[in-house]
Each structure stands twice: as structure tokens, then as C-alpha cells.
Design a protein around this nucleic acid. Structure first.
Length: 528
DNA sequence: AATTTCATCAACCGCAGTTTT
DNA sequence: AAAAACTGCGGTTGATGAAAT
């Protein structure tokens, strides 16, 4: 720590000729209306000024600090300094094991919502938590370990089914969290592209096992950095990835790990994130399993070894395809990919987690589900809190997606692989003649032996989730879905959309998925 | 002993949402 | 209603010290 050590005068006066102000390389300056504002580490003198100011004027109005206190800092800097270092009751020092546990649990629920997580950890700042988490990610990705301990996955999974109080340690149950107004659903879409280069295996275990313990995490996207690092790790070690996959993590990776890390090794398997490192140095991460001929592994575009430059930075919603003109084969996997970073359809609790997981459709469905669930409880609040704002998938993303979706409906569009055309192409028949959708789906062979077959030529299926699961057997609820989607996309659009989507989406929700089927039914050659 | 790597932390930046003018 | 100002958040960067080589 350098704060308060360098270049401060003991009398508390700011020294304008100090290296702090002169060394712009290190400390910088910013201009604010002709006033040069200081940047870089705070001195204790500055701290004192700020503390004094807050004592007199209270928190807030941070831009006034500079005007009234003579502190040459911008308001943002003042706020940050106060919040992270000067405000009372701040805890300093390492996180306790209990705090760490809470952070992990919270992150599993919330994702990178540091400020919210901080609210659950008195005396801790979002910055601290963020730093801790990032460090943790690095550490674990280097070791090829999952981010979340198995117990947590299991616990969450069980809670999802039992509707038991959440793992927050109390203040909010899982459902409360998911449904409360202030719960903001995880933002998977941001990261859904990251993993393009690191396509996970389709786990060989049933959905109720692996998937729900890993992919089923609302925050699965947080796993992405680890996956990125995982290959790196293997490469650095010059060890085949299969050492950790095929036999899968029977042995702990050769790292001297903290105990919690070690005990989480076993989770690596249960996460189902198993890869084979391509021994031929074609640098693909190949799924370990009976069928390695996964199309989006072999089309180059998704080659694991060469992460698309910028892929990790892409902040497109999962359904906002780039207009690359590369055709359907490029985009289908994206959808596919996004799907696998979404909560697992068949295993999701009835409380249906967030829309954040896989983009537009799930956002829509989430909304629909909200409508459906609340039946008599629906209020504008749901809509506004779920859809309207910012860091939620809903808001801008949804709008954007809607726009794109509309634009892509044209089957003649260059983006013929887009949602719209895909829906048109791939949607199973909607129920008619009085049969329920579920019956229809079974009749039409969409559900085979209680297993959901998956056809990756069907991006609509890819996009699906379980959120309409309940709706499928209820025409009343179905109308909620339709209505909700209609209301979100506009009536005309919504009607068309929901009618077609509903059926295919439900395909995913009606039974637990046996993922063994995936490679078998998802061949590149199957794609149109 | 020198160098490299890693872990930690503080702070900045850009963006987005909200409030005020 | 629009613009500006303010506020908060999350991502990222850079400095530093410790550990490893």
C-alpha cells in the first residue's frame, strides 16, 4: 500500500510540487473546467480533508467536495475513496472463511454484482469482493478447478427443487432472491461469446446430475474465465487436457492447492466441463465422449485454441449475431453455445431463474413465466424490474434483440440463420384439435422415451428453456406466455413469435434432458 | 543476488441509470 | 421534453511486495 506514505506533507497541506502531482505517468491529472484534478493514490492529508468534509456535509454531492473543500479530486474519486476506505465500519484485512463462503454463494446466485454482494457483507466493499473474486478466478483457472464448490452446486440444486430457504444464510431465500425486485439476474449473455472457443463437452451424465450442478448455475458464465485458463493451464503444463477429463479428475491436478480447492477438484467432473486436449495440436478442445464429431468444434470458427480475438470482449447479447455473412453454420453454434451457458432447462426449478442466461428468448420466457406465475399477483413492478433496466438482460438487450429479431424474420435475409427464420423453419407444430401441446410434442416425436432430443439445426430449440414447462400443460398459462411475449414484442410480432416459439421452447422443458443424446443428434450434417 | 512470476490492492475509466435544471 | 449533472457499478489497469526460480 502506498496510500498516505508518499509525498504528503505532515501538516496536511497538499503539496502541488510533490511527485504526486508532477509525475503524470504514475499519478496523472485530469482537467475539470480548467481545474487540474489530481489522480492516483490518496494521501492521508487528502483523506483527512475528505473525512472532514463528509462529517460536515454528509455523503453525496461528491462533486461539491472539490468545490468546497479544496480537494483536487473529482467527485467520483472522492466517492470511491470514501466508500472503499474512509467510511466508518469498514472491515479491513483478509476475508474470513465465512465471508469467503458467502461470497462464493452470492456469486453463484448473482454473478458479478459486486455492490449487491457487498450489501450482504457488512464492512466489505464491492471493490474488495471483486478483487477477491478475480484473484480466486485466476487461482482456480490456473489449477483447472471449478469456481464453485460441489457442495454449493448440490445445495443450490437441491434448493431449487425443494424450494427451501436459500443459501444466503438466511436473509433471503432462493426464491425470494430470484423473484425479488432487487434481484438482478445474472448476465450470461455478456460472456456467452467468450466460450465460443472453449466449447464444453456434452456431459455424459444425465441432466439431473452434471448439468444441474454446473451448467445449471445461473452464473455459469462465470465459469468462462476458468475455461479459458484451463486450456492455458494444460498447455503450460504440457499436459493433455484429458488428464483432467477423460478419467475425469480422478486425480487432483498437480497443484499445491488450498484445501478448499482440493476438495473442489471433484467438482470438475460434476460440472461436466471436460475436455480433451487435442494431441495433434490442432488445438481444439474436444469433448470426451462417444461422439467427438461435434460440428461446432470442427468448423474452425469455434476452434478452441485460437480464441477469437475480441471474443472475450464481445458484449453482444447471446442472440445478437454479428452480421458476418458467414452463414448459418457460424451462428448456429453461437446459439448453441449460449444455450449451454444458460440454466439447464429441464432442471430448473419452478421458480425459474433469470432470463439472463441465454438471451432474448429466455428473457421473454422469463417474463412470460413471471406473468404466468403471478397470475393474480402480476404487477407493473415485475415488468419494470425485470425488463426495463440496465444491467439486466431485459432492458436494452431485450429491446435490441427484439429489433434484430424483427429484422431477421425475413427468410431472405442474409441472416437467414437468425432466430426468425430459424423459428419459421424449425418449429414443431402447434397443438391443434384439442390436444395439449405436451401431447402433441410427444405425438410428434419430440420427446422420446422421456428424453429430450436435441437438434442443433433448430436454434429455436437451442434457445429454449424450461420456463414454459408449466405452461405447456395449461392453456391458461400458455395464454400468459403468448400475452407476455406479445406485450414485449408488440402484438403482431408477439403473436407470431410466441405461437411458434412456444412449442419449440416447450420441447426443452418437458422432461429432463439426457445429454448423451446431444452429440448424436447434433451433427453438422444435420444442419440445413 | 538478480530476475521473474504471482497475488493483492487501489484507483481509474466508461457506461448507464437517475435526478436536476 | 431535453440536456446536463450526478451517481453508482463493473471492468480494467498499474503499482507494489512476496514468493519462486
Amino acid at each position: 500500500m502506498v496510500i498516505g506514505i508518499t509525498n504528503e506533507s505532515e501538516d496536511g497541506a497538499l503539496s502541488t510540487d510533490s511527485p504526486l502531482s508532477n509525475d503524470s505517468d504514475n499519478y496523472g491529472e485530469s482537467s475539470n473546467g480548467g481545474v487540474v484534478l489530481k489522480k492516483g493514490p490518496w494521501t492521508s492529508a487528502e483523506d483527512a480533508i475528505l473525512v472532514d468534509y463528509v462529517k460536515k456535509h454528509g455523503e453525496g454531492n461528491w462533486n461539491a467536495v472539490q468545490k468546497h473543500s479544496g480537494l483536487w479530486r473529482c467527485g467520483k474519486s472522492c466517492r470511491l475513496r470514501w466508500a472503499n476506505h474512509l467510511r466508518p465500519n469498514l472491515k479491513k484485512g483478509a476475508f474470513t472463511s465465512e465471508e469467503e463462503r458467502v461470497i462464493i454463494e452470492l456469486h453463484a446466485k448473482m454473478g458479478n454484482k459486486w455492490a449487491r454482494m457487498a450489501a450482504h457483507l457488512p464492512g466489505r466493499t464491492d471493490n474488495e469482493i471483486k478483487n477477491y473474486w478475480n484473484t480466486r478466478i485466476k487461482r482456480r483457472q490456473r489449477a483447472g478447478l471449478p469456481l464453485y464448490p460441489s457442495e454449493l452446486c448440490l445445495q443450490t440444486h437441491q434448493e431449487n427443487h425443494l424450494s427451501s430457504p436459500g443459501i444466503y444464510g438466511g436473509d433471503k431465500g432462493f426464491h425470494d432472491v430470484l423473484q425479488s425486485d432487487d434481484y438482478e439476474t445474472p448476465d450470461v449473455m455478456v460472456d456467452s461469446f467468450n466460450i465460443l472457443s472453449y466449447t464444453p463437452q456434452f456431459p455424459n451424465t444425465s441432466a439431473s446430475g452434471s448439468l444441474s450442478n454446473g451448467f445449471g448455475f445461473p452464473q455459469f458464465h462465470s465459469y468462462v474465465p476458468q475455461m479459458v485458463g484451463f486450456q492455458k493451464c494444460a498447455e503450460e503444463l504440457d499436459e493433455p487436457m484429458s488428464d483432467y477429463s477423460g478419467g475425469v479428475a480422478d486425480e487432483a491436478p498437480p497443484f499445491d492447492r488450498a484445501q478448499d480447492d482440493a476438495c473442489e477438484n471433484k467438482m470438475f467432473q460434476s460440472f461436466g466441463l471436460c475436455f480433451q486436449y487435442d494431441p495433434d495440436h490442432t488445438n481444439k478442445l474436444l469433448p470426451v465422449g462417444e461422439n467427438q464429431d461435434i460440428p461446432f468444434m470442427s468448423n474452425g470458427y469455434l476452434s478452441a485454441s485460437k480464441p477469437l480475438s475480441g471474443a472475450e470482449k464481445l458484449e453482444l447479447p447471446s442472440l445478437q449475431y454479428e452480421e458476418t455473412g458467414l452463414g448459418v453454420y457460424n451462428n448456429a453454434p453461437k446459439s448453441f453455445d449460449s444455450f449451454f451457458h444458460s440454466p439447464l432447462s429441464g432442471q430448473l426449478p419452478s421458480c425459474c431463474p433469470s432470463p439472463r442466461s441465454s438471451g432474448l428468448l429466455e428473457a421473454l420466457l422469463y417474463e412470460a413465466k413471471s406473468l404466468s406465475k403471478s397470475d393474480n399477483q402480476f404487477s407493473d413492478k415485475v415488468t419494470s424490474s425485470t425488463i426495463s433496466h440496465g444491467d439486466l438482460t431485459g432492458g436494452s438487450t431485450l429491446n435490441t434483440c427484439s429489433t434484430e429479431f424483427k429484422g431477421n424474420l425475413d427468410p431472405t435475409s442474409p441472416l437467414g440463420n437468425s432466430m426468425g427464420s430459424s423459428f419459421n423453419r424449425c418449429t414443431p407444430p402447434t397443438p391443434t384439435n384439442g390436444s395439449t401441446l405436451e401431447e402433441k410434442i410427444h405425438d410428434e416425436g419430440w420427446i422420446l422415451d422421456g428424453k429430450t432430443t436435441f437438434d442443433c439445426s433448430r436454434p429455436d430449440a437451442i434457445l429454449g428453456s424450461c420456463w414454459v414447462e408449466q405452461s405447456a400443460s395449461s392453456s391458461k398459462k400458455r395464454s400468459h406466455v403468448t400475452d407476455a411475449i406479445s406485450s414485449l414484442l408488440g402484438d403482431d410480432m408477439g403473436d407470431e413469435y410466441s405461437t411458434t416459439t412456444y412449442a419449440s421452447v416447450s420441447n426443452w422443458g418437458l422432461s429432463s434432458c439426457t445429454w448423451n443424446n446431444m452429440p448424436a443428434v447434433c451433427q453438422m450434417s444435420d444442419l440445413p
